[in-house]
């Protein structure tokens, strides 16, 4: 989500969550409304074979779409109303300021895993997944972490293919495994 670091440090964050969180709230509310609108458009343009039933395949999606649009609008109103009154219960919505770097590393790890899973194989992709998340969460003993990662992914491979008979992609290590 878009955040401006200056806003966080202005000290307003202590009394009210500051403009930062509310902007995120607003964005999420808008996202809900937009999802509803897109759904409604897709529902209208849906390819429906001529059916005889009383409620066709469009009825329920249309209902949900309209519901989401209304809810999105209501959420926007709620955010705006709450922005006006200072006393609000922000227990859940005030994140303590998110660590975008750690989040970014995890997301990058997930992407890399998806790219590697069926090309490089489970042992490498799984180890990378483990190591990436561990690193993002503050694991800094790189060598030990790498060792643990490969141990985990290799053990899992062994347990799943030998024990349960489920297949995992062998990838480049196809001859070895």
């Amino acid at each position: 989500m878009t955040t401006s670091p200056e806003r966080v440090r202005t000290g307003r964050a202590e009394t009210t969550p500051g403009g930062r969180v509310e902007r995120g709230d607003l964005l999420v509310a808008a996202l809900v409304a937009v999802t509803g609108t897109l759904m409604l458009l897709a529902t209208v343009r849906m390819d429906v074979s001529s059916s005889v039933s009383y409620l066709g395949p469009r009825f329920f999606p249309g209902l949900v779409a309209v519901l989401l649009m209304a809810l999105g609008a209501a959420l926007v109103v709620q955010v705006l109303l709450r922005a006006r009154s200072t006393a609000r219960d922000t227990e859940q919505t005030t994140g303590e300021g998110s660590d975008r770097r750690a989040l970014g590393i995890v997301l990058a790890t997930l992407t890399a895993h998806l790219l590697l899973l069926e090309t490089a194989g489970w042992i490498i992709a799984g180890a990378l997944l483990f190591w990436g998340v561990s690193y993002a969460l503050g694991g800094r003993k790189v060598l030990r972490d790498l060792g643990v990662s490969f141990l985990v992914s290799a053990t899992v491979q062994l347990a799943f293919s030998a024990g349960l008979g489920l297949t995992l992609p062998p990838g480049v290590l196809v001859g070895v495994v």
Partner: peptide, 28 residues
């Protein structure tokens, strides 16, 4: 309640993806 119902709506929308069992219509 507003957030609860919104969450429910998101779930309902997710469940709609795919082929409709009764008519074979492809949805979302």
């Amino acid at each position: 309640v507003l957030r609860g119902v919104t969450a429910l709506g998101i779930g309902l929308a997710l469940a709609l993806v795919g082929i409709d069992e009764q008519t074979g219509t492809v949805r979302f």
